[in-house]
Amino acid sequence: MIVLDVDRKKQTMIQDDIPALVAAARDDPAAFGRLYDRYVQPVYRYIFSRVGSTHEAEDITSQTFMAAYEALGRYRERGQFSAWLFRIAQSKMNDHFRRGRREVGLEAAGRILEREDALGALIRAEELTRIRSLIDHLTEAEQELIRLRYVAGLSFAEIAELSGRREDAVKKSVYRLLARLKSQME
């Protein structure tokens, strides 16, 4: 099932499917396919936001899902599957960067996208550019929080598990970051 709703409660409820899908996926490739459908785009976007290259993002996305498929038998249904999957993605990216590829700034990665819709038209392009620039000047850990929340679309609970922090602490960190960004915009 794919649900891209940003509503926290809705996301949480939909997450309830995942353990059953994970259990089924151990024996059933089709079930893994459903997990893949649910996560491939968030994982890809998250990776793209760090590598800024379609080719490299596709390569790392492939590695991520292949590794997840291979390791699924070792995944324990005690945490959030998404956190486990994104940890694999982080591992693959670190492997990638360790081989000498440089991480691109969010500004550079975002500039590639030229998506227009009604909402986008309402928000002035220069305002988005300014926000992106401010985010680009955050620390790596702060940028990562923003990426996980607004690019990968993870819930606070998922980010908390991924980062080994408490959910309320993650929420506070994100909100403080947003408050700081907003004050810098004014």
Partner: peptide, 18 residues
């Protein structure tokens, strides 16, 4: 944060789909 500002951040961070 206001939903509007969160939405702006989300849009600013918009990345292409695969």
């Amino acid at each position: 944060p206001s939903p509007e500002f969160e939405e702006k951040v989300r849009r600013a961070m918009d990345m292409p789909n695969a």
